[in-house]
Design a protein around this nucleic acid. Structure first.
Lengths: 223, 223
DNA sequence: GCTTGTTTCAAACAGGCGTTTTAATCCACG
DNA sequence: CGTGGATTAAAACGCCTGTTTGAAACAAGC
């Protein structure tokens, strides 16, 4: 009874990887079972059919995924440092999605782009909290802003970050693989954070060399 | 000989629509032929196989697509007006992709996200020129910027726009369909343009109400 | 040891897929 | 009219899909 839970778990893992990189339609049950060293009938026995296996795989990837750095943004920090921190973590997760072992987040993203019944839990427990968190940060900059502006501001932040996952194949063709590789986490975090904070009037805008004037050089006579 | 070119054309149109909304793998040749009022064997006769039909459909959608507003950005205008104009047109195309009749752009986007041999022509003739155009505009703001910064700036503009196509299903769940609908072309164009121009130091940043201070109110004593 | 319930396995199932075959149809030209 | 090449049509082909079957293997309780 409990002994064979192992097969179920192996199936969930294999299904997650397969669904993540091929999608629901293109993933093959036989391939999943080979990966899991299980028989084809095991899917039907443990889950019923392909769709129920998919839903369970998404929810499983969702359960194992978050939890670690849930509250990585310091609630005591200033709004600009909070936004920087949010961008760093969000972008870090976006860039890490390229890694072969991060199939969990790729699977979750796939589910969000083509929502099935599994997306409810994802949005409720993962996406919504982070979106609200971002909006709370932005509201500290624009406390009197209407909802529509707040939404657009949030999407401006998210859009810039997510772009490096979504459009990566095009980007590699446009500026070359080495051009994409040069846009690493550190540089992009600083770029997007400065871009947004400048738009919000918190830090000075980019100069004619495209560089940002950070605090230390602003108050040069300070320390 | 020439008479039956009609069947070929009907197949290309039907294939374009079908590939655009279901993708290469999930589109069915039989369904395409029903749409085109053609026999299944017609695909093999006119194109060889499914993949060659797909490539021809992408290239056909590409040929019929652009050409109209190729140079919609006034080369004589100031850089800020050029950027505004670029964002308006790019965003307009992104938002128009939701329309059922704009399957051509949806198909092209699909091809760019999962590149096959058809993407070469797309990138060379459609994407690359516009990307270079955007970089030229941005270079007028930051003439001394290095390549990496220029790339990141371009992706900041593009990412904000494309987000409204890519993440639309999630956005509708996050802020509701009416929330997404409120983000129309006019509002978003102004929002993204102001966001970018403020980051570049050309216009004042958003104030605490999330509103932008446009030129007329800046030089209130002027006219 | 036998029974009972759970889990695995090889094999087969029906249906859909892209593709091919073979014959029928069309249409222009001599 | 009749001939030949281009186009269409119906049917079948082989393959692969998700799913199901029925029996075998296994462990536990009496």
């Amino acid at each position: 009874m409990e002994s064979s839970e192992a097969t179920r778990d192996r199936l969930l893992q294999a299904a997650g990887e397969e669904f993540a990189c091929k999608g629901f339609e293109c993933a093959r049950i036989r391939e999943i079972c080979i990966r899991a060293s299980a028989n084809v009938a095991a899917v039907n026995y443990h889950f019923g059919d392909k769709e129920k296996l998919y839903i369970e795989a998404v929810l499983e990837a969702h359960r194992c995924g978050p939890g670690a750095d849930e509250e990585a943004v310091d609630p005591m920090a200033g709004p600009d440092e909070q936004l920087r921190s949010f961008i760093r973590h969000f972008l870090g997760r976006v860039l890490a999605m390229q890694a072969p072992d991060d199939w969990r987040h790729r699977l979750m993203l796939r589910e969000l782009l083509h929502p099935s019944s599994a997306s409810d839990a994802l949005i409720r427990e993962s996406i919504r909290p982070r979106f609200d968190q971002l909006q709370r940060i932005l509201q500290r900059f624009c406390p009197e802003a209407e909802v529509r502006r707040l939404n657009a501001l949030a999407f401006s932040v998210i859009g810039q970050c997510l772009h490096y996952k979504m459009a990566r194949p095009i980007a590699e063709r446009l500026i070359g693989p080495e051009g994409v590789e040069a846009l690493d986490l550190e540089f992009l975090t600083d770029h997007i954070a400065t871009f947004c904070l400048a738009a919000l009037g918190v830090v000075p805008p980019f100069d004619t060399a495209g560089e940002s004037v950070r605090e230390e050089s602003r108050s040069s006579a300070g320390s």
